[in-house]
């Protein structure tokens, strides 16, 4: 348990949480090693786990019928995979694949949501961190939409 608590405490997403928060999360967190090439999430599937990357690299992919899957973002050491688990309908909007061998902290999403609802300090921490992830993703999407490197510079 201490090992998991320490792993949570040293992950940037959870840094700043107090002992109580870390202990709560540690109760439903598991360490998982994922080989390169394994699916972490599939579009439309239930988002019942929140993944925090301890090391390795995952690719967020979109698929169109007439082309190869396209990696539109990578998630790296110290980052987290998505927010679909936090918001209804709790389904993944993307496919996520391990591009390298990875180690992750897997948190049970239902228990994490319940913990956030019961402890608003913990809930605010998680929502605040997720907002940063969302904002960064939104900016990246905006840049990709206008194809910023497309003309001239």
């Amino acid at each position: 348990m201490n090992e998991i608590r320490d792993a949570l405490a040293s992950h940037p997403f959870f840094s700043g949480l107090d002992e109580r928060g870390l202990a709560t999360l540690a109760a439903f967190t598991f360490v998982r090693d994922v080989p390169a090439g394994e699916w972490i999430a599939r579009t439309g599937a239930h988002a019942d786990v929140f993944h925090a990357v301890v090391h390795g690299r995952a690719g967020i992919e979109i698929h169109a019928a007439d082309r190869e899957p396209l990696v539109v973002a990578t998630v790296h050491t110290g980052e987290v995979i998505g927010w679909s688990w936090f918001m209804e309908p709790h389904r993944w909007h993307f496919d996520v694949i391990a591009l390298d061998a990875m180690r992750m902290l897997d948190l049970d999403a239902a228990q994490l949501r319940a913990a956030c609802a019961a402890d608003h300090e913990l809930g605010f921490h998680v929502a605040d961190q997720l907002t940063r992830v969302l904002a960064a993703r939104l900016e990246a999407t905006r840049h990709q939409l206008v194809d910023i490197y497309g003309i001239a510079r």
Partner: peptide, 21 residues
């Protein structure tokens, strides 16, 4: 890079995201 197939061995995302990482 902004987008890639799986053979790309690096990061996908903006230069700003890389700086922040």
């Amino acid at each position: 890079v902004d987008a890639a197939d799986r053979t790309w061995n690096g990061a996908v995302g903006t230069a700003t995201a890389m700086l922040q990482r």
